[in-house]
Write a protein that binds this DNA or RNA. Structure first.
Length: 418
RNA sequence: GCGGGCGUCGCCAAGUGGUUAAGGCAGCGGCUUGUGGCGCCGCUAUUCGGGGGUUCGAAUCCCCUCGCUCGCCCCA
């Protein structure tokens, strides 16, 4: 038989890795709890329409990366490529926004059909927060600070926070017009994909990685100049807020981001240790999205961070998380001994001891060797003849010398471990 | 979707056209029918990701395919 393999870009996390994942998840939960943010869990599968309208049809995510299919009832379904649209959908659907502004966090797998590479999988995992109904610039600062503190708490170094303002809808439309006409005149000097974007998504040309396009853009009309007065002061407030909190940031006037729903503040946190996929956290304000998805116009802001990339970074500074070791390893052999062993194992577990039971039936020397290797502190040795006489041997596996252990009755044994 | 690198046992890894495909780790068994960290001995790939071809002969050369990996695009 040919061996079956997992799907491309779908990764198994083995026990060696899950310890680190749990550590990161726990840290994140702790930060959310401190900020009084509750969790929401939404389905992995949504109506394709949600993402078409939410993320934008001209984006790469929607255009070429979605896992979409018809279900048995001919519904057009998509495995969620990101979390924000779902959270907003759920909030609208359940009328949560009528109860005033609210924040949520979420965590879970997302799906994008891309070529896997370092820090990028087809099923990947994000942790994110969404603050719905918050208009003030202080909420931008608060939300960014939560991400920043979380990453610092994980001990990460070499992080850069970049921010930009995309302005409101009117600003963007005005700028879009200016940019298009300026670029049209220089169309010949643009790289191929930027030429395509001139029609579909001209703002994205700004953060083209193509060097000659970047060179050309140095003299292009700038987004920051196109911002209206209100947008400008708003952005100033965000910058001041970050300064007050001593959160270092870099202005990046070319930071546009790939999803259509962003307005005003857009930001990214990158690491200098990751290779090509350096963004570990990305987010921004999306004041138009909720209305776009059929809710009443509500301002909002959020971010998401990529677990795989966080794990990559954290594993560099956290070389080894020890596997959890048992308190007690139960060595046993013989019919009578084996049934008593099971009883003792369960009893000790009910006393909250971590107990590993050897059910191999192999020679005592073998079992003891495994006991030693397991890292357990104690071994309880159960043999047939002793078990008959209510005698059990307790050995300290961490003692300096190999000891013969002490002989105890079951009652005293349990007392030792209560 | 496009480029580069790679694919030999659970893991690491030698072998680069010629009789039985090194070695290490892990695993299993024994020395020790019932007692741990050491040691010693033995066992563990008819087969080199899969398929096809070249050849008297291939893990070694060619083609296809699958997978991994790095990068482009894009994003977390």
């Amino acid at each position: 038989m040919e061996r079956l393999q997992g799907l491309r870009g779908m990764v198994d996390l083995l026990p060696q890795q899950t310890a680190l994942w749990q550590k990161i998840e726990n840290t994140a939960r702790h930060h959310f709890k401190r900020a009084a943010i509750p969790e929401v869990r939404t389905p992995l599968l949504e109506n394709t329409e949600l993402f078409l309208r939410g993320i934008g049809e001209s984006t790469d995510v929607v255009g070429k990366e979605m896992y979409s299919f018809l279900d048995r009832g001919n519904r057009n379904c998509t495995l969620r490529p990101e979390g924000t649209a779902s959270v907003v959908r759920a909030a609208i659907q359940h009328g949560l926004l009528t109860q005033g502004p609210q924040k949520f966090w979420y965590a879970g797998p997302m799906f994008r059909y891309e070529r896997p590479q370092a820090g990028r999988q087809r099923q990947f995992h994000q942790i994110g927060i969404e603050a719905l109904g918050f208009k003030d610039s202080r909420s931008d600062v608060e939300v960014i600070s939560i991400a920043w503190d979380l990453l610092r708490d994980l001990g990460l170094k070499g992080l850069t926070l970049e921010i930009n303002s995309l302005g409101d809808l009117a600003d963007r439309l005005r700028f879009r017009k200016d940019l298009i006409s300026w670029l049209e005149e220089r169309r010949g000097n643009l790289d191929a994909s930027s030429q395509d974007r001139l029609k579909s998504n001209p703002l994205r040309i700004l953060d083209s990685k193509n060097p000659s396009t970047q060179e050309l853009l140095k003299d292009a009309p700038s987004l920051s100049d196109a911002l209206g007065e209100e947008s400008k002061t708003r952005f100033e407030q965000v910058k001041e807020g970050l300064q007050n909190l001593k959160i270092p940031f870099k202005l990046n006037p070319l930071l546009v981001r790939g999803l259509d729903y962003y307005t005003h503040t857009a930001f990214e946190i990158t690491s200098n240790q990751l290779g090509a996929q350096a963004t570990i956290c990305g987010g921004g304000r999306y004041d138009g999205l909720i209305e776009q998805l059929g809710g009443t116009a509500t301002p909002a802001i959020g971010w998401a961070l990529g677990m795989e990339r966080l794990v990559l970074l954290t594993s560099k500074i956290e070389p080894e998380i020890k596997k959890s070791e048992a308190d007690v390893y139960i060595v046993n052999r013989g019919a009578k001994a084996e049934s008593i062993a099971l009883f003792i194992t369960r009893s000790l577990r009910l006393k909250n001891r971590i107990v590993e039971l050897d059910s191999s039936g192999s020679a005592f020397s073998k079992q003891l060797k495994r006991a030693d290797k397991s890292g357990a502190r104690w071994a309880i040795i159960i043999g047939d003849s002793e078990a008959e006489k209510d005698q059990f041997i307790l050995k300290d596996l961490r003692s300096e010398k190999v000891s013969s252990g002490e002989t105890l009755s079951m009652k005293t044994l349990f007392q030792r471990f209560s």
